[in-house]
């Protein structure tokens, strides 16, 4: 069973370590647009949301690619771009509903998460457990459990009770 990369934005501290390590692994440099993951910062509310490819089951990027350059890795289930085929048309960039594909104007190619062949660097460096790489069932059940732990808070909000 391939694992999934699951993001818990409420835990992210916004350090961008994940971006740095990603561009480092794939392109031997530090450059945000060469990273498959990006932390979107919202300073006004002091929040940060890591955005990364969801490796969709019905991938829009793959569907729009006119040269079939995007395929699914059999082992990791990651959608991987074959740059030998890619013509750099950016259709995938436009199609992704999460904006998870970035076009780098130096390399002149779309950049997306490839799950590091099943050993994602970002997960290993993240200091806050905002990123996890686990079996789908385990990860989603854990998420459910955590939500329930937050439920009293949620209930308070729903019923309008002030905390």
């Amino acid at each position: 069973m391939p694992k999934i990369l699951i993001v818990d934005a409420s835990k992210c501290v916004g350090c961008r370590d994940c971006e740095l390590v990603c561009s480092a692994k794939h392109y031997q440099t530090f450059k945000s647009s060469l990273s498959g993951i990006a932390t979107i910062k919202f300073d006004e509310i002091s929040r940060d949301v890591p955005m990364v490819c969801q490796q969709c089951e019905k991938p829009a990027c793959q569907a729009v690619c006119p040269v079939n350059a995007i395929s699914r890795d059999e082992e990791t289930a990651a959608l991987v771009i074959n740059y030998d085929l890619c013509i750099g048309c950016k259709a995938c960039v436009s199609a992704c509903p999460f904006g998870a594909i970035h076009f780098d104007d130096e390399e002149k190619r779309p950049i997306k998460c490839d799950l590091c062949d099943g050993d994602p660097e970002c997960v290993k460096i993240c200091p806050s457990e905002a990123l996890k790489y686990e079996e789908a069932d385990k990860a989603t059940m854990a998420k459910r459990r955590e939500s329930i732990e937050h439920l009293p808070e949620l209930l308070k909000l729903i019923t309008g009770e002030k905390g």
Partner: peptide, 10 residues
């Protein structure tokens, strides 16, 4: 917690 750039100490 919240961190500065590149920081694990946050």
């Amino acid at each position: 917690p919240r961190a500065c750039f590149g920081c694990s100490n946050a």
